[in-house]
Design a protein around this nucleic acid. Structure first.
Lengths: 244, 244
DNA sequence: GTCCGCAGGTGGTCTGACCAATTGATCGTT
DNA sequence: AACGATCAATTGGTCAGACCACCTGCGGAC
């Protein structure tokens, strides 16, 4: 038997997660003031330093403002937080997937992916094409093989194709954005049922996509990307809308 | 005379900024190990707690991995950091604008803006239209007025139009993304020359854009958004390419 | 009534200690 | 010599208590 590694989270991590979820879930509404550091440390039975680390991270995430001598105020995260919060938003505190933000994310991913593919077709180098074909071959092999890859393995394989595409687009903003999606996808992979449609073969549109990019055909690449991501979007939409 | 408020930053903030810039600038390359907390605190002549807060924030930003008893390793931020880092990337440690990431960001903003406009045209409510027209009127008034608004004021006015559009698109991912752009724009506003083209009147395409969204015409809205953002992109491209 | 000043509360910094995990050298066994 | 168990040094994690810097609001002086 294989046991999964124990998730060790520090005290500060736990405090941070609690406060973050309370803010996202509007339990601690925007504009309200958090208890003082000393009070929080007493409530949580932890040292004040741990509280401080958590609060500073909340500030980094633009979830609160901290005023020296004043206090800690909750901000309206919808108006201040950035995309880094998305992976936390798509999963509720109780571990369930939130349908609405999830679909919003998939929509954004499609738009970005289509344009990244277009850009990649314009800018890709010979080395980039080689890498891309390699990633595609690995993904196809996973489906053809006699093994029984997990859905997380499959999602990872498709993600690596996209990493290669975004790399080829030579746009650091697209790159960072793709990293945000990766974090959110990791959340999904943990939660989706083990035997789901993610393991079915969706490689056909990717073959077309890679060929279009390699041929330096931006419009064809965009169309193929739209197709490839549209499939994923529909699958995920279904899974998210009626879980289980 | 009016003096600008002094930027008070805590020691932990200063440490964080230093380490972050060292990582982004590859002075502390990916894979390398940072000095121990005790050593850093000695080097910087600050408390170990301040060092810890900075390191935890670096971890939050996916710039380093921390292993209990192991050490602090620098990650490849291009592959791990998310869009929240973009505002830090567009401005170098010495305060100068980095052209390449800046153009990448503007490109991404155009793609997202066009799609947000399309979505807004489909989903906007009557209340949303009213808010949008109000924001537009405020921006137009700034140009028509006899006052002499700063470029920061103008940038803020255009940003509020976009906030209204993104709100109307009812997509939380687009919303968070727009917040990331706002942070980056704030950086720009601080650095751009006081008397620049940002203060010129760019409202015409926005009038068309708002009308198209109000008329629930997605394609016209997308075209107008492309026009409006294209202008901004060209202006910024010029400013960024040959500063001063 | 208005204004000033002070006291109490809040975040920011510091010191020093101990706990927990990793690492690598050491030493013994095979 | 190769391997493995052991242990000490190193590093991150937590804790306690103190003091400084800043903000706020109450109360007294005017």
């Amino acid at each position: 038997m294989i046991i999964s590694p124990v998730a060790r989270q520090s005290v500060a991590d736990a405090v941070y997660a609690q406060l973050r979820d309370a803010i996202i879930d509007d339990i601690q509404p925007a504009g309200s003031t958090l208890p003082s550091e000393r009070e929080l440390s007493e409530q949580a039975s932890v040292n004040r330093q741990a509280i401080r680390e958590a609060l500073q991270r909340l500030r980094e995430a633009n979830l609160v403002t901290i005023v020296h001598g004043g206090g800690v105020r909750v901000r309206d995260w919808r108006r201040t937080a950035d995309l880094a919060l998305l992976p936390e938003v798509v999963v509720a505190a109780d571990g369930r997937i939130r349908p609405e933000p999830s679909l919003a994310m998939l929509q954004l991913r499609t738009v970005l992916g289509v344009d990244a593919a277009r850009l990649a077709a314009e800018r890709i180098t010979d080395d980039g094409v080689a890498t891309l074909r390699e990633r595609l071959a690995e993904t196809v092999a996973l489906h053809d093989g006699t093994g029984n890859p997990s859905s997380a393995t499959m999602i990872g394989a498709y993600e690596r194709i996209w990493v290669a595409i975004v790399d080829a687009s030579r746009n650091i903003a697209y790159r960072l954005m793709n990293n945000s999606f990766h974090a959110a996808n990791t959340q999904f992979a943990r939660l989706l049922p083990a035997d789901d449609t993610a393991r079915r073969d969706h490689t056909e549109p990717y073959v077309v996509l890679v060929d279009a990019i390699a041929a330096h055909d931006p419009e064809a690449a965009a169309a193929a990307a739209s197709e490839a991501l549209g499939v994923a979007e529909r699958v995920m939409t279904m899974l998210v809308s009626n879980p289980g």
